[in-house]
Design a binder for these strands. Structure first.
Lengths: 141, 141
DNA sequence: CCTTGAACCTATAGTTACTAGAGCATTTAT
DNA sequence: ATAAATGCTCTAGTAACTATAGGTTCAAGG
């Protein structure tokens, strides 16, 4: 029932897809595991931990590039953590920018929808706004 | 000085890149313009308007697929605008979801950064949180 | 008129982070 | 023993562009 840590079990344990696990191996972010007699991947617990780290960082919106950096940091516990801090701060800035943008976008969409009263396309506020940028008051780009 | 509407002028007028204009033509979202004697694209005003529509919708975060739908609606002014409304509403929902997610993400990042006091990686909260999902209080997936 | 440099052309490949499919081998359960 | 599930590799597809290479055309200056 338990048996060896096949790719399917690892994927289930970390909530990511089987192909994604293989993909992470291929791009070198997850070490190649050993193989069974029949050439199937057999993982160790450490693989699961690394995968969990990756998935978690991705969930938080870090790019794989950043994840790579964070992982190499995590592998050197004696180093100072300024670099990790810098990565996180840079990411926070990006997140805040995206947040602002999405917020003004939401406002604009709400206004568009609110003013579209189910008439004809020719009177449709949504289409009008898309035609004439100056009709929208939001500060989006 | 004014001259014909070449691709460069159209791109400048709509704030998008020359390659992007060609790309939109290639994927069939922007009609192919006429050509000059020397095989260069010569646009009409209508192209600029359509491009502006596209860029504006993309700015608002609509996918090209949605833009395609909205454009085909815009081309039929006599139709009811329920469909445009539905597209916009669906998009609004997506935007709101993303917003929530980004917000909890921002909270989590801030806490991570706040608690990382420039020590060593072994004590770094950022790395710790990425290692152990349960350390983070945020509701992200 | 000629040249030079900017802008144009096509076609192809690269980006990010996966996801999906074909076609076959192995493992597990019955 | 067999059938279903899972695994394997390799390739291509996704979104929405962006970039490069290698060549043509156009507009302006001398």
């Amino acid at each position: 029932m338990a048996g060896p840590l096949t790719i399917g079990r690892v994927a289930k344990a970390t909530l990511c897809k089987v192909q994604t696990v293989r993909y992470y191996e291929k791009i070198g972010i997850l070490p190649s595991p050993g193989r069974s007699a029949g050439n199937q991947r057999i993982y160790e617990q450490s693989h699961i931990e690394r995968l969990a780290f990756i998935r978690h960082a991705r969930d938080l919106g870090f790019t794989l590039k950043s994840v790579r950096e964070l992982l190499s940091l995590a592998d050197q516990p004696d180093q100072p953590c300024d670099v990790a801090d810098t990565i996180a701060r840079k990411h926070l800035l990006q997140v805040e920018t995206r947040l602002e943008r999405l917020l003004s976008l939401k406002t604009e969409l709400k206004r568009m929808i609110h003013q579209c009263k189910g008439g004809q396309i020719s009177d449709c506020r949504i289409i009008q706004v898309l035609h004439d940028h100056h009709l929208c008051l939001g500060g989006h780009q």
